[in-house]
């Protein structure tokens, strides 16, 4: 299943919720599925700046695909990064770099996208793209 299909599924799941509480409960639950970063990577090097909560993101290339792991000290942030990882992990750098970010809007999370927004969804996506870019250039 590619990025396009995964985002389509997510949008469909989110369409179910008619109130914000259901949506946030879902995001909180998503956080529990987050593939956790190895404790040894919880260092400033792997910290994403621009977030009010701490976020650590790690990536490695396995068989040509980027595998992301992450963690955060805030529950909602954890959910949001889990959502991103669900979309972008296990994809090739090329697929990640050409992905259409329109799904963020479709999920009703656009309010978090501005670069100044304190939860740093923007910074998380930027960091994921940076990893993908670095892996692509390294080849």
């Amino acid at each position: 299943m590619g990025i396009k299909e995964k985002t389509r599924q997510l949008v469909e799941e989110f369409d179910y919720f008619d109130d914000w509480m259901d949506k946030y409960n879902y995001i909180i639950d998503l956080g529990k599925t987050l593939p956790l970063i190895d404790e040894k990577y919880k260092t400033p090097e792997y910290t994403i700046s621009g977030c009010q909560s701490q976020v650590w993101l790690h990536a490695e290339l396995v068989d040509g695909k980027v595998i992301f792991t992450a963690d955060s000290d805030a529950i909602i942030t954890k959910g949001i990064i889990a959502l991103l990882i669900r979309v972008f992990s296990d994809e090739t750098p090329d697929e990640i770099l050409k992905a259409d970010m329109g799904f963020i809007d479709a999920l009703g999370l656009k309010e978090y996208l501005s670069p100044t927004r304190s939860n740093g969804l923007f910074s998380m996506i930027k960091q994921m793209e940076m990893y993908a870019y670095a892996f692509r250039e390294k080849r």
């Binding site: 914000w20 509480m21 946030y24 009010q52 909560s53 000290d73 805030a74 529950i75 909602i76 942030t77 304190s118 939860n119």
Partner: peptide, 18 residues
């Protein structure tokens, strides 16, 4: 985490700072 509290309070239309 204060951030979680603030984000959800906002959804209840309560403006606080975190």
């Amino acid at each position: 985490h204060p951030y979680d509290t603030g984000i959800l309070l906002d959804k209840f239309s309560v403006a606080v700072r975190t």
